[in-house]
Amino acid sequence: MAQVIETVGLTKSYGQRRGIVDVGFSVSEGEVFGFLGPNGAGKTTTIRLLVGAIRPTSGSARVLGLDTWADATRAHASMAYLSSDPGYLGELTAAEQLDYLASLRGLAKGAWRRVAERLELDPSVRIRKLSRGNRQKVAVVQAFMGHEPLLVMDEPTSGLDPLMQREFLALLAEAKADGRTVFLSSHNLPEVERGCDRVAIIREGRVVDISPVQVLLGEHWRSVNLVLDTPPARGFFDLPDVRVLSEGGRDIHLMVRGDVNPLLRRIAQLEIRDVAITTPDIEDVFMRFYDPTTREAAAPGSPAPEPVRPATEPSEEVLA
């Protein structure tokens, strides 16, 4: 499958300040690629390099084979961009603003109407009178109003209410169904979990992991809570990849990684009043890579952490 985005050794430094270091990844055609990291990790710097707003200190970023700095204008023809916290012109109405940006992207006047209706945006209101959430709707409409093969979005749902976030995810799914490629930077973990095919995690300017979302979640621990009629014998749950967090009588809290079948077979030997198995959300996964406390020791009630990959040693996929 063709690579729509490709970065190799992408580095940006702002004098003494760190930007990003040796970032390498590729995004295939039709893929929804999440870019996760907390504030200051380097997400926006990476996006600014992808849209040609800043020049790389070293390395390169390419969009559909075009260098995003040297061939920025040609690369932009294939790209729709939603910036983080865009500052629209307050004196214009949303319709005037969107028509202006549409004209710069070679789109017809009113190309935004369909998406604006879905997001329940009133286009006749001046931008300065719109709430934060409605301004973000303008940004989302602006991003989805065209048919460019690549969508680059920086914190797209910031300020949107849950209903609009759901509508955003629907738009995202439709874009994917249309074969469009999406690069989505976020620290909204559920949004990435629901919308993305693969996720890169950036920490302190370096990409520390790139994995399919399902793999990232699948490699993680699940929480199993049991309520039994009779407490089991000590050591009853001694199985590979199973950890007993608490055995206070009839209430048992276990953690299991990978295949759950051996544990389920063992549990089936008991009289069970209740059982709950919960999958981790991506926040648990993300914190594993970022939070120093979870790297050193498990928090109460959480699984033992896995060792984080060294920041200077990208995953195999990064190297590939």
Partner: peptide, 18 residues
């Protein structure tokens, strides 16, 4: 001013050169 208010990157990410 437009860069500071976060507007400039919108037109400059379109098909017009800087």
């Amino acid at each position: 001013a437009d860069l500071d208010r976060g507007f400039l990157e919108l037109p400059l990410s379109a098909r017009i050169s800087r």
